[in-house]
Computed example of a mutant assay.
Amino acid sequence: MSRIHSTALVDPAAQLDASVTVGPYAVVGPHVRIGAGTSVGAHCVIEGHTTIGADNKIFQFASLGAQPQDKKYADEPTRLVIGDRNTIREFCTFNTGTVQDEGLTQVGNDNWIMAYVHIAHDCVVGNHTVLANNATLAGHVKVGDHAILGGLTGVHQFTQIGAHVMAGFASHISQDVPPFMLVDGNPLSVRGFNLEGLRRRGFAPERLAAVKQMHRLLYRQGLTLEAARQAIDALAAQYPEAAADIQALSQFIAGSKRGIAR
């Protein structure tokens, strides 16, 4: 039995693995490639220069690969690339990139993306993230691995969200959020660090202690940002097991262009 429903419209030029399933009334454009084991739900539209990896589950009514919502867009062949084993729920909208950036919107692997999530042009979403219902990423946003965005959270364009961040329900994120932090609100406030999330991911006690100290230096000691960064760098000697975590946070602060949430 064919894995493509008789009512689906799949362009002959599209490249679909033989194991891909396509539901009723779905539309798949000519520049689309879909990997093994991926399922496309009813009424989905997948268009543009879109590449989707293996074992993704795309629920009904999703729109993937449509043109970016950017007035400067002039029909350039920009791309959307989605990795493997992602769950993409109903009514999600992921757009392709723009030539003002890298021309690429990218979603990694093993992400849990709930209904009505919007991922705008030139966004980069890492691996193992959770984007709850109606989370919205404006253009050029970057989301690190294992980040969690609560429902109805909005992220301003060009903002970066570090790895292991947790943002609560309806957060308004307009500045960069450093790795490991726990934030919520409008205006946004840093409430602590994501202790429970880090425990669940197997962080050893020394790594947890280092993250606690980094949070204290950055948010509880009244230090300037540069003084806090220098003090964080010095923690590597005290917590050698957490050297990579310390470096990640320090480099995030140094590379922030919008300023960090503080």
Results as ranks from 00 to 15, higher is better:
197 G>T: 11
168 G>M: 09
221 Q>E: 15
182 L>I: 04
190 V>K: 00
190 V>D: 01
172 H>Q: 10
210 A>P: 02
191 R>C: 07
164 H>A: 00
216 R>P: 05
214 M>L: 11
204 A>H: 12
136 T>H: 12
205 P>Q: 07
201 R>E: 12
210 A>W: 10
152 L>P: 00
153 T>Y: 10
197 G>A: 13
210 A>Q: 08
150 G>S: 11
199 R>N: 06
194 N>A: 06
173 I>D: 04
206 E>V: 04
168 G>N: 12
149 L>P: 08
151 G>N: 09
189 S>R: 04
190 V>G: 01
181 M>S: 04
194 N>S: 08
208 L>C: 03
187 P>W: 11
191 R>L: 15
166 M>Q: 13
212 K>P: 04
169 F>N: 09
191 R>V: 05
131 L>T: 11
180 F>L: 00
186 N>A: 14
174 S>H: 09
216 R>C: 10
190 V>C: 01
150 G>V: 09
142 K>G: 00
168 G>H: 14
188 L>K: 01
206 E>C: 01
149 L>G: 10
167 A>E: 08
173 I>H: 03
146 H>I: 01
219 Y>W: 14
145 D>E: 10
139 G>M: 05
216 R>N: 13
139 G>H: 04
197 G>C: 07
161 I>V: 15
164 H>E: 06
163 A>T: 11
194 N>C: 08
188 L>N: 02
203 F>Y: 15
157 Q>K: 05
150 G>L: 08
210 A>I: 12
197 G>N: 03
